[in-house]
């Protein structure tokens, strides 16, 4: 009796911690949604009107009808799609090689690649600016796609290597005996089985590239504007009434990512935790 009562207290305490962190996690988004639903004059005097029920969808309408904003948003999706495609296709080939073959310098290369992930963007953004300036590639899709894809590649290589290790190699060996080439064995056997790991990698690489701000702001931003840079432009474009519009725009930008995670977060969690940390 004593025991079960103690246990119940412990469980209540555990739920209290989880609920608190949940509220903490969602609170800024909740207050942002509230702002997005307010008419602009709610913030003209102090204290701002957060707590009345005067709500409107005008801000969302303005934002969603703004062709510039739609364009920025399209840029972000295009760049993130291509960058994650490059990162994951190139990265999983390397990950497969590290998981399946033994060759000279293998461990050196793997540790070296991991070390690359630790180089701060602040350390290479200046030479990027230099290099791509010389190549006349600043403010193009190419530069953002290339830099974004390389940014996630080391992690994707490690994640995919871990994932391929969980797939029994006997399956591929059987295919090899049946006369498949090594690459065909990869394509027909290992690749489909690694789908959850791939999904996790694609989500990771897509979200990182989609959400990037510093690179998009520094290496582009006048001709090619992504949604993150576009958000900061509302500040200048709509001086004075920016708060409600930025909130509505931010919120509309969140929706696809949150939906993607709601659908795939299980694979993501399994892929991230199962793949990245294996041997």
């Amino acid at each position: 009796m004593m025991h079960s009562k103690k246990k119940r207290t412990k469980i209540i305490l555990a739920y209290a911690v989880l609920a608190s962190w949940g509220i903490f996690s969602l609170f800024p988004l909740f207050s942002m949604l509230l702002i997005a639903l307010k008419p602009k004059n709610a913030f003209m005097s102090f204290p701002p009107d957060y707590f009345s029920i005067r709500l409107t969808l005008d801000n969302f309408m303005t934002v969603l009808k703004d062709p510039n904003w739609i364009g920025y948003y399209g840029n972000s999706i295009l760049i993130a799609l291509l960058a994650s495609l490059i990162s994951v296709s190139v990265g999983s080939l390397a990950g497969f090689s590290f998981a399946r073959y033994n060759f000279r310098m293998k461990w050196f290369l793997m540790v070296f690649i991991l070390a690359l992930q630790m180089i701060p963007t602040a350390s290479i953004i200046i030479p990027f600016y230099n290099m791509f300036g010389d190549l006349r590639l600043l403010d193009t899709y190419t530069v953002l796609i290339l830099v974004d894809s390389v940014g996630t590649m080391p992690f994707v290589i490690w994640l995919m290597r871990g994932y391929f290790l969980t797939i029994p190699r006997e399956l591929e060996e059987a295919a090899l005996i049946d006369g498949c080439s090594g690459l065909k064995a990869f394509w027909k056997i290992a690749f489909p089985l690694a789908a959850p790991g791939m999904a996790a990698s694609v989500i990771y690489a897509f979200v990182r590239a989609f959400n990037d701000y510093i690179i998009a702001r520094t290496l582009a931003g006048s001709k090619i504007v992504t949604y993150t840079v576009g958000l900061t432009m509302f500040t200048n474009q709509y001086e004075g009434i920016n708060l409600t519009l930025i909130s509505a725009a931010s919120f509309s930008a969140l929706i696809p990512i949150v939906i993607m995670f709601a659908l795939f977060h299980k694979y993501f969690v399994i892929g991230m935790t199962g793949g990245a940390l294996k041997g």
Partner: peptide, 18 residues
């Protein structure tokens, strides 16, 4: 887990404004 992931997956620009 899904709720706890949300702050991590949103852009730092959106996080900063909020």
């Amino acid at each position: 887990r899904a709720i706890f992931l949300i702050p991590w997956i949103i852009s730092s620009v959106v996080a900063a404004y909020s």
